[in-house]
Simulated scan of single mutants.
Amino acid sequence: MLQIRMLTALLLVAPAVMAQDDLSKMFGKDSVSRGPVIATFKSTRIINGQSNETLKKGELDFRVAHRFGDLGGEAGGSKTFFGIDNSTDIRIAFEYGITDRLMVGLSRAKGSGNFSQMYEGLAKFKILQQTIDNRIPLGIAVFGNAVVTSMKSSTVESDAAYFDNFSSRMSYTGQVILSRKFGNILSLAVLPTYVHRNRVVHMDVNDMFAVGVGGRLRFSKRLALVVDYFLPFREQASKDYFEGRGVKFYNPLGVGLEIETGGHVFSVNFTNSTAILENQFIPETTSTWLEGQFRWGFNISRRFSLGGK
């Protein structure tokens, strides 16, 4: 009789155990391994360049970016407290997550280069997310912005800042962001980029392609090294023309230390770029690291939840 009762209990328990095992396979390790890779980068930006990251739905990101003056060279040194007395560009932005994959934003930048008093509208969308099991080996996102300057028009027609109509004030950036995270230590990104400026000076180019690369090397849970670099493809005739007039263009390079402090992501960086917006730092960087014409700056991100989880 006891044996019959034990057999009956085993027959009742076995299906439940098997069902639990099936559920664990469905929602457990197998499900996790097919899940998306998270935190490829800790911020929506690396230093100058974009990362693949977007904001969560209902998340508001208040961002402040600042670039000081040259540390060395003729414009730097102790007389300007190694650039701290000067400011080449400042950007203040509000960015918002429409969905977990789509974010939009508005910003105001001081501007550096031909234009100042810049207003920017932007959007970024995640097309694909890298998965833990490498069935999708790369993350793919797209970024775009439209920028308008509100500065007073020059009265000299040959100046870059001479605006004969409103469209002359506009510039645009389109970018594809290819990213991959290697374990929990290293993240890399490649950023094919297109910049269009409606108004340029003689022998400058309206349309410019560039390729950016960026990386994040994690030291600890809250500390990482970040680097990005852009290679603009400017026509040789344009380079020669400007060099003949004492203007030489350089490739933007940024190196920084990223610190995460709860709701804040703080980046202290050094870059030869004087501008913050892609529309300016990609085609208009004329400072070089080799002559001390780089500056320290910072990016601060503070996020707020306005709804959702």
Rank of each mutant, 00 (worst) to 15 (best):
T80H: 10
T80D: 09
T80C: 07
F82P: 08
F82M: 04
F82R: 11
F82G: 08
I84G: 08
I84A: 15
I84D: 08
D85P: 00
D85R: 01
D85M: 00
N86V: 03
S87I: 15
S87Q: 15
S87G: 13
S87V: 15
T88M: 03
T88F: 01
T88D: 01
T88E: 02
T88G: 03
T88A: 12
D89I: 00
D89M: 01
D89Q: 05
D89W: 00
D89T: 05
I90T: 15
I90N: 14
R91A: 10
R91Y: 05
R91S: 05
I92L: 10
A93Y: 11
A93S: 15
F94M: 12
E95G: 09
E95A: 12
E95D: 14
Y96R: 08
G97E: 02
G97Y: 07
G97S: 05
T99L: 02
T99S: 12
T99V: 09
D100W: 12
D100F: 01
D100N: 15
D100H: 11
R101S: 14
R101F: 06
R101V: 09
R101Q: 15
R101E: 15
L102A: 02
L102K: 02
M103D: 12
M103V: 01
M103A: 08
M103S: 14
M103N: 13
V104R: 08
V104M: 06
V104E: 06
G105P: 09
G105M: 01
L106I: 13
L106Q: 07
L106W: 09
L106V: 14
S107W: 01
S107M: 01
R108P: 04
R108D: 06
R108C: 05
A109C: 00
A109E: 10
K110Y: 03
G111F: 01
S112L: 00
S112G: 03
G113T: 12
G113F: 00
N114K: 15
N114Q: 15
F115N: 12
F115I: 09
F115D: 10
F115V: 12
S116C: 00
Q117D: 15
Q117V: 08
Q117A: 13
Q117E: 15
M118L: 15
M118F: 03
E120C: 03
E120R: 08
E120N: 14
E120D: 14
G121P: 02
G121I: 13
G121N: 04
L122F: 10
L122Q: 12
L122G: 08
